[in-house]
Write a protein that binds this DNA or RNA. Structure first.
Length: 549
RNA sequence: GGCACCAUAGUCUAGCGGCUAGGACAUUCGCCUCUCACGUGAAAGACCGGAGUUCGAUUCUCCGUGGUGCUACCA
């Protein structure tokens, strides 16, 4: 077969050849050791936590080696395209501080960089040029079998084939053997066709492969005639990956482990074009425990898969990042303990330290990381963050905050600062309920059954009468203690020795006041809260408590 | 069905032939304390199973088992 003739038949309108584009996009001039990384999300929904995971690896690697991290929109599947998803991807990367140096920046912003266009659907001509090159080299052939099936059809067909035979045919024995005349006839008849790789690999043969995360591996050669260009003229991921990462100068392809099985096919495609494959880093996939089963985090079922989820919940982006970083390099938390105030950019991150099993998402851990981060922030900053969150997700609360800024900051200042700050907030959305007692009336709370109700009543009555709003912390407590002792509440030690003899201990008395004033059993320093609330409110609430007993 | 990846406590993991198997979150119990926290001390909790290699295997090899992924003209 005359492959040049075939190439002309298939791609009569392709003007340039591969070398032309290789010249248009020459090798990048970067310092030695610089790595070029990229993220290639498809605009089929939102940005997945797994994208953030990959993006952090790519961003840190590029920064550390003085290389480039760029964003490419992989929108070759127009069936699944969701408008605006590209904007979200870029915005989220910026929001989480893993901003690309170049590439796509959303639908309304100009792209940055010399290696564009960074939107795959704009690159059809380039892909076709490389496709034509493959045909010229006798490494690709048209397939007329026409498959525009839905996913369900494909899965059904696969099931059927599995039940009938042991393996699915990997070579397309029908179309790869068509004669030039047959192909010509089909083309002239207007039959749709896809371009497939004419694989020369033998899956029985193996070769070495180095993955930056998995290490040295032995993999089978590809033996599959994969589709390089769909019948609509657009390439699927495989060819787009080969062409783009060549032309854009990617040195390390960071991608999810789900790509690992197809790496041999990708390498064969690079080699068929005489191109050098990049280095690969196949990352673990974040999963979760669902009814006792471990499974990949799913876009549909799991809201936490969407990076916007954490914004809605009010997790600081620093917390999400540190959590992901901790998943990536588990010695991060040790480093953080030793360097509580350092910027995470100083952490000695390494791709090699990434484990290769799929971690499960753990909210407890995220919450803990978040609490620690927030506890280190001054009240003004915490207020600003809460307010910014409320403005977006709870307008009413935002108004309330705006009108009570001073009070709220005072509230947030209690037990904050110093060596042992309180750690009770991990997400902004919880603040409204946590501190509701400073703005709202509270419902009368029930008290521990251990405590004698009459004594409690008497204690509170006397406390109201003698309540002095001006007392400092020590005097405030001494007063409570003194009054409590007068109503059969005992000192801690005495109470422990003989609980049944007393109405409760001093701690219980103190907690009576707390529950009366805040409706909660756990709050920051009570004396400060009472100062903040004001004399009238405090007395009112104490009285309500008495009435409810 | 085929192919591949993974396998240490509930979770994330350290370990790279000999360790009382280390740390973090969560759990439980003390201490501190006016409560809840914070802090602090402690407890409980793990090498998937079986062969082999070896003087010695959590660590190396093989076979199982389990989980996961791929097997699309989706990425």
């Amino acid at each position: 077969m005359d492959y040049n003739k075939l190439a002309e038949l298939l791609y009569p309108n392709v003007q340039h050849d591969m070398q032309y584009y290789l010249n248009v996009y020459p090798a990048r001039k970067l310092p030695a050791g610089a790595e070029v990384t990229r993220l290639g999300p498809s605009p089929t929904g939102y940005l997945h936590i797994g994208h953030l995971y990959s993006a952090m690896i790519s961003r840190i690697t590029a920064t550390k080696t003085h290389g480039v991290f760029y964003l490419r929109l992989e929108d070759t599947d127009q069936k699944r395209y969701i408008p605006g998803a590209g904007d979200v991807a870029y915005d989220m990367l910026c929001y989480y501080g893993v901003k690309p140096d170049e590439g796509y920046r959303g639908d309304n912003l100009e792209q940055i960089g010399e290696y564009g266009d960074y939107v795959q659907s704009h690159r059809t001509e380039i892909y076709q040029t490389f496709a034509k090159e493959l045909v010229k080299r006798g490494r690709a052939f048209p397939c007329f079998c026409g498959a525009n099936d839905s996913k369900e059809d494909i899965l059904e067909r696969r099931e059927k084939e599995l039940s009938e035979s042991e393996t699915i045919t990997e070579h397309d024995e029908h179309c790869r053997n068509l004669s030039f005349e047959q192909i010509k006839a089909n083309i002239e008849a207007g039959k749709p066709w896809a371009l497939k790789l004419l694989s020369t690999g033998d899956p029985e043969k193996q070769h070495d492969f180095v993955d930056l995360i998995k290490g040295k591996r032995v993999i089978r050669e590809n033996g599959k005639d994969i589709v390089l260009v769909k019948s609509n003229g657009i390439p699927p991921y495989a060819l787009a990956h080969v062409v783009d990462d060549t032309l854009m100068g990617t040195t390390i392809v960071v991608r999810g482990e789900e790509w690992y099985p197809s790496v041999a096919a990708h390498i064969e495609t690079f080699l068929a074009l005489g191109l050098k494959p990049p280095k690969y880093a196949h990352t673990p996939v974040i999963s979760k425990l669902d009814d006792g089963n471990k499974r990949k985090l799913s876009k549909r079922k799991d809201p936490e898969a969407d990076v916007r989820f954490y914004i809605e919940q009010g997790y600081p982006k620093e917390a999400v990042k540190e959590y992901v970083l901790n998943l990536l390099n588990s010695d991060f938390e040790m480093w953080r303990n030793q360097n509580p105030l350092s910027d995470i950019a100083e952490f000695p991150f390494s791709i090699k330290k990434i484990g290769s099993n799929n971690p499960m998402f753990d909210f407890e851990k995220l919450n803990n990381i978040s609490k620690n981060i927030i506890s280190r922030w001054p009240a003004e900053r915490v207020f600003a963050e809460i307010y910014a969150w409320a403005e977006k997700f709870d307008g009413k609360y935002a108004n309330l905050l705006q009108n009570n800024k001073e009070t709220m900051i005072k509230m947030l200042s209690i037990d904050r600062g110093g060596d042992r700050p309180r750690k009770d907030i991990f997400a902004w959305s919880m603040v409204k309920d946590l501190y509701d007692y400073i703005f709202n009336d509270i419902a009368p709370a029930t008290i521990d059954e251990r405590i004698n109700k009459n004594s409690a009543k008497d204690f509170l009555k006397e406390y109201i009468e003698k309540y002095d709003h001006k007392l400092d912390k020590q005097a405030w407590f001494d007063q409570i203690k003194q009054i409590a002792l007068g109503h059969n509440f005992a000192d801690n030690k005495e109470y422990k020795a003989n609980p049944s003899a007393y109405a409760g201990n001093v701690a219980d008395a103190c907690n009576l006041v707390r529950v009366a004033v805040t409706g909660k059993t756990a709050t920051p320093d009570l004396c400060s809260i009472m100062q903040l609330l004001g004399k009238d409110k405090v007395k009112n609430r104490l009285q309500n408590m008495i009435n409810s007993l």
